[in-house]
Simulated assay, not measured.
Amino acid sequence: MPRILNFYMDDSGTRAPNREPLPYNKNAREFFALGGVLIDEDAEAAARKLYDEFCARWSISYPLHSVEIRHRQERFSWLALDRFERDKFMSDLSRTLLSLDILGLACVIDRPGYDARYREQYGYRQWHLCQTAFAIAVERAAKYARKIDRKLRVLPERTSKVDDDRLVRYYDDLRTSGPPFAKDSSAQYSPLTANELSETLHEIRFKTKSSPIAQIADLYLWPIAIAGYAPRNRPYVALQSSGRLIESRLTPSQIDVAGSKYSCFELVRRHRRGC
C-alpha cells in the first residue's frame, strides 16, 4: 500500500465570478480561498485524539466551526458571555491547533483583483474562482507529497452536488492534462506535468463537517486567507512561528512555487505602497 498524505480542503467566500464590475475597496476583504491542512495518514489518529480531548475538556459535541467561533454566534454564542472563559477557550484551542502534526496550505484569490485582471478579456466567461484555486492548491500539495515520497489524497468538504462535481472534474483534468493555465505565464511556477500529477494524485474523497480534521482545515484556512490583507494577524503569526505552515518545510526559493498562493493581489499591494 502506498504511503498517503491527506489534503483536507475547505472554502471561504463566493466561488462564482462577479456579474457586475467589482471596484477595489481598501476597507473590504473580498476573496475566495480554498485550502486547509496537509496531514500524513499515519498522523491522523494522534490528531483526532488531541481533538477529542479538547472537545471533552469543553463539553463540546458539535463541530468547531470557524465563523461561529470568531463571531461568538449560534452554538458558540456562550463565548460572548464571559471574557475570562472566552480567553481560556481561545488559548486552549490555539495550543491544540499548534500542537498538531499538520501543515496549512491554501490558494487565496482577491476578487476585485481577479475582476480587474480578467473582466475585459473574458467578461461573463470568467472561470469560477474554485477552478483556479483548486488547481493551484492541489498542484502545490502534490509537489510537497512528492518531496516527502507520498501519494496525495484530496479531501474537500462536501457542499452541493454541482460544486462537488466541479471539483471532481478539476481533479480528473489535473491527472489527465495537468494544470489548466497558459504554459508561458505559468512556467515561472515550475508546474508538475500531467504524468507527475497522475502518478501522485491517489484519489479524491469528500468529507462532511463532522470530520475532526475537516474542522481543523476550516480553522486553519481563515488566518491563511486573511494574511493576504493582514500578514501580521495574530492567528497567522502563531501558525508561522510554530512551523505549522507549509512554508516552514520549503526553502526560500521554493515558497513562490510551492507555498500558499495569493492570486490577483495587485490592487492590495498597490494600496499598501500608497500608489
Score class of each variant (00 low, 15 high):
residue 8 Y to F: 10
residue 12 S to H: 13
residue 12 S to R: 10
residue 17 P to W: 04
residue 18 N to C: 13
residue 20 E to W: 04
residue 28 A to T: 14
residue 29 R to K: 06
residue 35 G to V: 09
residue 37 V to T: 05
residue 40 D to R: 12
residue 42 D to E: 07
residue 45 A to E: 14
residue 48 R to W: 02
residue 49 K to Y: 12
residue 49 K to W: 09
residue 50 L to Y: 15
residue 52 D to P: 02
residue 53 E to S: 08
residue 59 S to P: 04
residue 59 S to Q: 04
residue 66 S to T: 10
residue 74 E to W: 14
residue 75 R to E: 11
residue 76 F to W: 05
residue 76 F to T: 00
residue 87 D to F: 02
residue 89 F to E: 10
residue 91 S to C: 10
residue 93 L to P: 09
residue 98 L to P: 10
residue 102 I to F: 11
residue 103 L to S: 00
residue 106 A to S: 04
residue 108 V to G: 02
residue 110 D to P: 02
residue 114 Y to T: 07
residue 115 D to T: 13
residue 115 D to H: 03
residue 115 D to V: 05
residue 119 R to H: 09
residue 122 Y to G: 00
residue 126 Q to I: 04
residue 130 C to M: 15
residue 140 R to P: 07
residue 142 A to H: 03
residue 143 K to N: 05
residue 144 Y to E: 13
residue 146 R to C: 07
residue 154 V to G: 04
residue 161 K to S: 13
residue 166 R to G: 11
residue 167 L to F: 11
residue 167 L to A: 10
residue 168 V to K: 01
residue 168 V to S: 02
residue 170 Y to F: 04
residue 172 D to V: 11
residue 175 R to I: 10
residue 176 T to G: 07
residue 178 G to H: 00
residue 183 K to G: 08
residue 185 S to A: 01
residue 187 A to Y: 08
residue 192 L to E: 07
residue 192 L to M: 03
residue 194 A to D: 02
residue 198 S to N: 03
residue 200 T to N: 08
residue 203 E to F: 15
residue 210 S to N: 09
residue 214 A to R: 08
residue 216 I to K: 10
residue 219 L to M: 09
residue 223 P to G: 11
residue 226 I to A: 06
residue 228 G to A: 12
residue 241 S to F: 06
residue 243 G to Y: 09
residue 246 I to P: 04
residue 250 L to N: 06
residue 252 P to R: 12
residue 259 G to C: 02
residue 263 S to T: 06
residue 266 E to S: 04
residue 271 H to I: 07
residue 272 R to L: 01
